[in-house]
Amino acid sequence: MGGAVTLAALLAAPAKADALPQEKWAGVIAAARAEQLLGALACRLSGIAVPERVGAILHDARDMAAESRRAALWEAEMARRVLAPLAVPVVLLKGTAFVAGGLAAGQGRMIGDLDVLVPRAALDDVERALLATGWEWAKPDAYDDVYYRRWMHELPPLLHRDRDRLIDVHHTILPPTARITPDADALLAGARPLGNGLSIPAPEDMVVHAAIHLLADGDLAGGLRNLWDIDRLLFEFGEEDGAFWSRLRARAALHQAVGVVARAVRLSHALFATAVPDDWRGLRAGDAWFRRRLLARDEWGRETRAATRAAFYIRSHWMRMPPPLLARHLAIKAWKRVAPARS
């Protein structure tokens, strides 16, 4: 079995690292790097005896995650300064929300883009404010622009010209064309202020968003990291509050994401032994397929199971767009690919 299987086992039960034969470590480290989970693994294994060279690699990974955290928080601060005069709610999402909220899910996490949620009505003002202060369109392409504006749940990505960091401005957490429609207003209304003008989603909403991000918004590439986010969120929120699980169920229903959240919880329990109430457990039909996809990474860091991955790729487009729209989208993308060769 591949590197991702051992990686998941170590994340679930770090004490097992003690018994891992030295020759297995290279495979675990390669798989963890490929899945963007080496920092998380390093934090999980701190204090556990590992071979000296492994300890040095894990130390570097923790260090790298600390720098990633610093850059993410500063990028949030830069956006805060620019958006503060607009007096609109700005909710941090994903990795930046985890580190800004001091959550376990942020420990060792690598953070690339800054993801924020703002009210749809504020989108134009936010766009104008960002464009006036150093952010530029990352892809100057007319079709993609129209595509984003008509069909997507976010502005086209903006890149800051000095800091070279991307911001994704969302007005909801799934494209309007997707099969399920999360309640963006409820997400904004339930957000928890951080005290500096920014906020992060309520705990249940964070889990719902992470589950949607994992299972309803993409082809599961990098999915193991997203599932680890879910494990850490469930671990932290479930432990500190007995009513969390019933609120999670209600919130999942509000966002039309009951099935997605339930599957994410089952997979988290299955792969990472997350403590989960009895009625959330037990794998269902189809879960095994997701599990195979999530663990498709060998001990050289290569993706395996090409057929499973291809199936998930098609599924990802299927879920996000009604078929006629999908056909049109793929046709335009295909034409664009051949166009430069003709001109």
């Binding site: 720098e67 610093r70 850059a71 928080l73 500063w74 601060e77 800091r163």
Partner: peptide, 8 residues
């Protein structure tokens, strides 16, 4: 000058 909050 190294600015600690930004790392810049």
């Amino acid at each position: 000058v190294y600015h600690r909050a930004s790392g810049i």
